[in-house]
Design a protein around this nucleic acid. Structure first.
Lengths: 228, 228
DNA sequence: ACAAAAGTGTTAGAACTACACCCATGC
DNA sequence: GCATGGGTGTAGTTCTAACACTTTTGT
């Protein structure tokens, strides 16, 4: 009964939900699938697990091949196993979500692979159970950003308070009060205010900040806990 | 490159962390493994995914075979894929944690299978990466009990405030103030106080409560959020 | 009468929410 | 000079945390 039975072997896939932020909206990256079945339809970025790699390795490989990006925040969040989720063959899929700075991704590679950014609110119909994956990833991202500062990974290195607020607004999908937001962020004391302004968004210009990783680490606590 | 390649098929296992509560301590159920490798060593309850079932089905089947229990709270939380995690053969394992009322589990079945409850704090060395699984499951359980009332699944139907407090104390691994705890629970308004006392724990006796599922559902909100 | 656990409220401090005006600059 | 987005503080309310004594009853 408890036996290593080769009959029960299955194919394992990895699918990645890639979140980006363009100062307006939370975005997600999809590709036009280039093989059957469902060739030509929108899909998450995915691929099969190879014999000699871990799921994390596979997720990084797949993401790297598509975008050229390395060393970004990635988290595994669920494994999907409905019998008929893939009509060709029994395939189990483990999904990851990743957070990338949209300015850094390699535009050529994504275009070459028929990839396209969509607003989260305008996601198209996706193949298989990928819409479900997206929904779960979004919920997880929401919860995660409340307890960990991973959100900063979506921003350029230097950013304004306004960008940060828009980012949180688009992740949480609600409007926040400007003053309360700034007060709360400042009270956390994990940002460094630069003597430098971003002049692109207004005539007055707005101060740029950078995330202070050292200060954050020094707090060595998991209670970032940004309740918004 | 993106191909259905039979070479890459792997075995998929399911391992379950089963939490119970005996009015003193949070407990976890382990079994003595009865096949090679590592035969005779402590292990999580687990088994292999069969061709025609989902991971959820497999987890329920495995748990049912061992304990006779059905329809309990179970949640998938991570899939483990280190190349050498199982020395015999490449095996990926998806882990679940389950929450059961320790009084209801079928004692004969567990004894027959060499299963044994351990205090969470006294867990033995487990095979493969099972100690890691346990640690992750414990963290997940902690977070989950803060935002959802699944903890009640660990208690008998009727329970005292003191039992409930001890349960939360052992899940969160910290002492709580009796008065603050009662006030907070009462303010949630999801318990029904019975006109019945439990006389086993003191001469005075303490009131019994039951969880009011209807009231909880009626609040139809996810903000249970018990900050302790 | 005493031991053992149950039950019960108040208060000070912290955190959260709501809210409105002036500033700097490019046009 | 005016339109645009940037920046800032306070007061009322709610939530949290700390804290000690009385009740009941079996022995």
């Amino acid at each position: 009964m408890n036996a290593y039975n080769p009959q029960d072997k299955v194919l394992l896939a990895v699918d990645c939900i890639i979140f980006g932020f363009d100062n307006e909206d939370l975005k997600v990256l999809f590709v036009k699938r280039d093989f059957e079945p469902e060739k030509g339809n929108w899909s998450l970025i995915g691929g099969f697990l190879k014999k000699e790699e871990t799921l994390n390795d596979a997720a990084n490989r797949i993401l790297h091949n598509l975008t050229g990006v390395n060393d970004i925040y990635m988290e595994q969040f669920y494994t999907w196993s409905n019998i008929d989720r893939d009509p060709v063959e029994r395939t189990i899929s483990t999904s990851y979500y990743a957070i990338i700075n949209i300015q850094e991704y390699n535009e050529k590679l994504t275009e070459h692979h028929n990839a396209k950014w969509f607003s989260l609110t305008e996601a198209p119909h996706l193949i298989f159970d990928h819409n479900e994956m997206l929904a779960k990833a979004t919920r997880r991202l929401r919860r995660r950003t409340s307890i960990s500062p991973i959100g900063f990974g979506l921003l350029p290195e230097k950013f304004t308070m306004r960008q940060l607020q828009k980012l949180y607004e688009s992740i949480l999908d609600k409007k926040l009060d400007k003053r309360n937001f700034v007060n709360k962020i400042k009270s956390m004391d994990i940002l460094i205010k630069l003597n430098e302004k971003d002049m692109t968004s207004s005539t007055k210009g707005s101060y740029l900040y950078i995330f202070d990783q050292e200060k954050y680490d020094a707090k060595q606590t998991n209670d970032f806990y940004l309740k918004l």
